[in-house]
Amino acid sequence: MRISRSTSPRIGRRELLLGMSSLSALFCVQATRAATLSGGALRSGVVHQKFMSVSSLLVPHKLNETIGIRTADAMIATVPDFPEHLEQLASFIEAKKPADVEELMEALPDVSLKNAAQSIIESWYTGAVQGASTISVISYEEALMFKVTSDVMTIPSYAISGPNGWTADAPPLSQLPIF
């Protein structure tokens, strides 16, 4: 997590760096928007496309493309072996043409690929990419974890209704919203 300090008061540079490094050791939010790929625009375009295509099988929700691009960039920057795993997942899907994520996960041969798939799923649901030593925040409002309860509760900090418009009624648990 980057903490932006007020620059007007003169803080000792050493103290600031100390504070920053201890923070960043735990949480480091990457400005992924600015991240450019070493392979250039063409390669990143292909990766983004693959990421979206793999994600659309892994996650049975409508996916936002901008978030997909930013997630892929963050994974490339912070998750070891991500490009290779993405490539392998894409090839596997291309070859086996699984109908859905359930079929894919059953069929995936090795644990590292399963973990890679799971981390892609996790990033869509939580809105954050867990890197080797960092967490990159990609989204909050679009994080899929909020969609499955959107018929009952709000995304915290957003209005659920007009004033006093909520009630004690809740829809059945089994009735998942349509995504």
Binding site: L58, P60, D100, V101, E102, M105, A117, Q118, I121, E122, Y125, T126, A143, M145, F146, V148, T149, M153, T154, I155, P156, L173, L176
Partner: peptide
């Protein structure tokens, strides 16, 4: 507190995916 994010963290820890993941978060 809305427990959506807590539920999601727990459900993801279980390694779920697909419809089972959505149902467990809910």
């Amino acid at each position: 507190m809305a427990r959506g994010s807590i539920g999601a963290a727990e459900a993801l820890k279980k390694g779920l995916y697909g419809r089972a993941l959505d149902q467990e978060i809910r």
